[in-house]
C-alpha cells in the first residue's frame, strides 16, 4: 500500500509540478514582478490608490506562488518517504492491525495535507487550513509511531 501509494503520489506531484511550470508559473512570476514594479511606479507618480491595488495583487500572487510550489514539493517528498518506509515497514515492531493503521494514516495525511495547502489558494477561509492541519497531524503522529516502532525493533 505504501510503496504503490507513495509512487503514485510522487508521480502525481511531479505531473502537477510539470503542469504548473509549463502553464502557470511563468505567468505568476510575471505578475509578481510587474505588480510590485507598477506599485512603486504608481507611487512615484503619486497615484497612491493605484499603488495599493498593485501591491495587493503582488501579495496575492506571492501567496499563491508560495503555496503552489509547496504543494508540488510536499507531494513528491512525502511520496518518496512513503515508498522508503513501505519497503521496511515489516521492521516496525507493532501488531499487524496497528501497522496497517499507521500506514493508512501516513498515506491519507500525505495526500490530504498538500491538498489543503492547494485549497488555500482558492479559499482563504478556515476549511483549507483545518484540512492541511489534519493532514499534517496525521503524517506527523504516524511518523512518530513508526519511529517508536523502529526503536522497539530487536534485530
Amino acid at each position: 500500500m505504501l510503496v504503490i501509494g507513495g509512487l503514485l503520489l510522487s508521480i502525481w506531484g511531479m505531473s502537477y509540478g510539470l503542469y504548473y511550470a509549463l502553464l502557470i508559473e511563468h505567468q505568476t512570476l510575471e505578475t509578481i514582478g510587474s505588480s510590485l514594479a507598477t506599485s512603486f511606479a504608481s507611487a512615484s507618480q503619486r497615484k497612491m490608490d493605484a499603488s495599493r491595488v498593485n501591491l495587493e495583487s503582488y501579495a496575492l500572487a506571492c501567496f499563491d506562488y508560495a503555496r503552489q510550489v509547496d504543494v508540488h514539493s510536499h507531494w513528491i517528498g512525502l511520496g518518496i518517504l512513503l515508498v522508503s518506509l513501505g519497503v521496511i515497514f515489516n521492521r516496525v515492531s507493532f501488531g499487524e492491525r496497528l501497522r496497517f493503521l499507521l500506514a493508512l494514516a501516513l498515506l491519507i495525511g500525505s495526500a490530504v495535507f498538500p491538498l489543503g495547502v492547494m485549497w488555500q489558494t482558492m479559499d482563504r477561509g478556515p476549511g483549507p487550513r483545518v484540512l492541511a492541519s489534519v493532514g499534517a497531524a496525521l503524517v506527523t503522529s504516524a511518523l512518530a509511531g513508526v519511529a517508536i516502532g523502529f526503536v522497539r525493533a530487536r534485530e
Binding site: 507611487a43 503619486r46 499603488s51 501591491l55 495587493e56 503582488y58 501579495a59 506571492c62
Partner: peptide, 17 residues
C-alpha cells in the same frame, strides 16, 4: 511573515512617496 512582507513594502512605498 506574509503580513509583515506586505506591510513593510507598503511602508517603503509610503515613506518614499
Amino acid at each position: 511573515h506574509e503580513e509583515k512582507d506586505a506591510a513593510i513594502l507598503r511602508s517603503i512605498i509610503d515613506n518614499s512617496a
